[in-house]
């Protein structure tokens, strides 16, 4: 089963050193996952201060500065994995470095037919 692991934490709680170490450890985790055939994708995101929100209402496009919702913890990155089941996904989420500072939300992927595939 495919799962999206969404990583939330308070951006301001990280020092530059901590952030760099987190990126390195995360890269290592993606390599481990890839070796066991469970890696589909992963990436950190730039700070929420770089966010832009778009909506179209009554045919009019509205572009605003900032994230969809102001929250204490912000979406900072994601892993997309192919795990055996929820217990496997929970175990992988527990290995994401940011889990010690923030929270990882596990969401099962809703499979849709008709999407382009890489192969």
């Amino acid at each position: 089963m495919k799962y999206m692991l969404l990583i939330y934490s308070d951006e301001n709680a990280w020092t530059d050193d901590e952030q760099q170490r987190c990126y390195q450890e995360s890269v290592q985790l993606t390599q481990d996952l890839h070796a066991s055939g469970k890696y589909l994708g992963a990436s950190p995101l730039h700070s929420v201060t770089t966010a832009t929100s778009v909506r179209v209402r009554d045919g009019k496009r509205l572009v605003t500065d900032g994230p969809f919702a102001e929250t204490r913890e912000q979406l900072g990155g994601y892993f997309l994995i192919d795990a055996q089941d929820l217990d496997d996904a929970i175990a992988i989420a527990g290995r994401i470095p940011s889990v010690y500072k923030g929270t990882v939300e596990i969401r099962p992927i809703l499979e849709l037919t008709g999407l382009p595939t890489d192969q």
Binding site: Y3, A83, L86, D87, P108
Partner: peptide, 10 residues
């Protein structure tokens, strides 16, 4: 939907 397994935990 979430794939909660049917197994005795590790």
């Amino acid at each position: 939907a979430a794939g909660i397994p049917y197994q005795v935990p590790s």
